[in-house]
Every structure is written in structure tokens, then in C-alpha cells.
């Protein structure tokens, strides 16, 4: 089982007065873009029928530079933005072809400089179903799997998305459709990847007008552009280890840039490319216990923070 999902951060910028902003929770972004980031949500692994995994994952994401549109900058009014995440995930194998996961993070944000206060709270519940469409041996030495994955995300708390970058999320409901391929050699080397689209609902603000993407809008409702994600991974796994390394790309299909010295906005075009590496280790003396370590770094972006994330998780597997 592979682990960690990238999380992402978003950028925020400062405001007129001292403010500024920064970010959203990194995770917040990603969890929306790639629901169920953690654990098996990203990979092509399937659970056995009646097998259940429960995971606790701890993440710490920081950035001190962000992209204001295309301009990379620092901001003394936020300094370094840190997002801490605790995510609980439950996965269950309904059959050898269908695994369902549910994941819920608790997020805390904090800025090292300036006067903006951090936010914390339960974020969005993500539920994903992975359905294995194809499971074939190729030339007797490699296994090819094709998965169809569907997911949905729903905010579980009434947090505001209008205080970026300190807000813990974007408060949009989402629906995800993904096609994933996984090819694994008998020796344990594998490559896999997916493409997905995330449809996002509009969000409602506590104010009656806003300005974004060159447009003054007399409404409290914000049109949220959809998102496309692509991921490619190479790795090795055996009965004890699984070590994937890869790249994830997010493209927001619309939205405006953060203007010069402006605050970030919920519907900004948040794009990034992120490199990630994980190590999963099945503890030898405790049956069913797996330790996960992961690291992610944003290589390039637009309207997001250049985040670096470290994650640690523990998974316990049992049969019901």
C-alpha cells in the first residue's frame, strides 16, 4: 500500500495592511484536489475482502515562499506558514475488486510573522471507491492493473474559506473521477500513474461582493473552477517494503491569479508540480502494522506556496 498524498499549499499574499496571508492549508488544497490523499487512496492496491485498514497520519507542511501569480516571493507579513494535519483514514475491502476508503483531516495553520491568527478545525470528509477493472498477467512476468476510482468530498465543519492563507480549506464539495494504471514486475519494481478530474461546487462567502480574475462580482457565491491532476510513480515493493517516488501535477481549470500584493482568493488558479517520495515499512514483530514516512516538495507553482511536507503515519490492518 502506498501512502501519502501530497498535500498542497496555497499561496496567499498579503493584504493591504499588514496582513497577509498565506495559505491555506496545504493539505487543504490537496485533499480537495486529490481526495484521500493519504494511504491507499493514491495507489493501485486493493484490499482483500473483509480486510480493514485504519490509519493515523501526521503531516507538517511549511512554506516561506509563494507564487503571486507567476511571481515568486516572500512576505514579511506571514513569514513561514505552517500547516499541521492529523488525518484518520479507514479503508475496507468489500470484494477483491472493490475497496472503499474514508478520510477526515483535522488541520491547524499558523504564520510565523505578522498579526494574522491561525485557524484550526475538522476539514472535509473524503470517500473514495476503487474498482479494479482489469487485472492481467503480461507475458507471464508482469501484472497490469487498471482501476476506475470515484470519490466525493464534503466539508464537515462551517469553516470560512475567505481567510486565505490561514483558512483550513476551500469549503467546496467535490466529486472525483480517476483512471489509474499499475504495472508491476515479478521482482517488485513497478510503475504507475493516473489522471483525474475533480468537479467542485461553488462556495458561499460571508460577504456580498468580491473581486477576482479582473471581475467585480456582486454576489456571495464564488464559481469554483474544476481541477485536473496527474501523477506518475516509480517504485519497488516486496513483503516488507514499499518505496514509491514520483511527480504530481495539479492544474486548476480556470480562476484568476493573485494580483500584486493582493490576498489569495478561494477560486484562484492554483497549479503546482510536486515531487514526492515515501517509504512504507511493515513492522516485522507486529502483524498488520505498517509505518509510513513521506516527504513532498513543490517544484514549481502558481498561486500556491512552495511547500515542503513531511508526513508520518501508522496503519493497522485487520480482517473482519
Amino acid at each position: 500500500m502506498r501512502p501519502l498524498a501530497p498535500s498542497f499549499s496555497q499561496a496567499r499574499a498579503p493584504s493591504r495592511h499588514a496582513i497577509t496571508v498565506s495559505t491555506l492549508g496545504v493539505l487543504a488544497l490537496l485533499s480537495i484536489a486529490t481526495p484521500a490523499a493519504a494511504q491507499t487512496l493514491e495507489d493501485a492496491e486493493m484490499l482483500q475482502p473483509r480486510e480493514m485498514h485504519t490509519t493515523a497520519m501526521f503531516g507538517r507542511d511549511t512554506w516561506d515562499q509563494y507564487w503571486e501569480g507567476a511571481l515568486k516571493r516572500t512576505n514579511g507579513n506571514i513569514g513561514t506558514v505552517t500547516t499541521r494535519t492529523i488525518t484518520g483514514t479507514v479503508a475496507y475491502g468489500f470484494s477483491s475488486k472493490l475497496t472503499v476508503l474514508a478520510s477526515l483531516p483535522y488541520i491547524t495553520t499558523e504564520a510565523s510573522q505578522g498579526v494574522l491568527h491561525g485557524e484550526s478545525g475538522r476539514q472535509d470528509l473524503t470517500v473514495m471507491a476503487k474498482y479494479r477493472v482489469i487485472n492481467a498477467m503480461i507475458a507471464g512476468r508482469a501484472r497490469l492493473k487498471l482501476l476506475a476510482v470515484g470519490g466525493a468530498g464534503i466539508p464537515t465543519a462551517d469553516y470560512t474559506p475567505d481567510f486565505l492563507p490561514m483558512s483550513i480549506g476551500l469549503h467546496s464539495r467535490s466529486l472525483t473521477g480517476r483512471a489509474a494504471l499499475h504495472l508491476q514486475d515479478r521482482t517488485g519494481w513497478f510503475v504507475d500513474g493516473y489522471g483525474q478530474r475533480v468537479w467542485r461546487s461553488n462556495v458561499t462567502l460571508d460577504r456580498s461582493t468580491y473581486f477576482t480574475d479582473g471581475q467585480f462580482v456582486a454576489s456571495n457565491e464564488v464559481l469554483m473552477p474544476d481541477v485536473a491532476d496527474y501523477r506518475a510513480t516509480i517504485g519497488f515493493q516486496n513483503t516488507r517494503w514499499c518505496i514509491p517516488v514520483g511527480l504530481t501535477e495539479q492544474r486548476t481549470l480556470g480562476g484568476g491569479d493573485i494580483r500584486r500584493q493582493d490576498m489569495p482568493f478561494v477560486s484562484n488558479r492554483m497549479d503546482f508540480t510536486m515531487g514526492h517520495a515515501e517509504v512504507m515499512y511493515f513492522l516485522p514483530r507486529v502483524a498488520g502494522l505498517r509505518l509510513d514516512l513521506g516527504a513532498m516538495h513543490t517544484l514549481r507553482g502558481r498561486n500556491v506556496g512552495q511547500s515542503t511536507t513531511i508526513m508520518t503515519g501508522l496503519t493497522y490492518a485487520l480482517h473482519l
Partner: peptide
């Protein structure tokens, strides 16, 4: 999951 999916479909 089914409820979430249906709900989100309706929403999106």
C-alpha cells in the same frame, strides 16, 4: 460513499 457520491453529483 453512495450518499456522498449522489450528493456531490447533484451539487456539481
Amino acid at each position: 460513499m453512495a450518499l456522498c457520491v449522489v450528493t456531490s453529483l447533484a451539487i456539481t
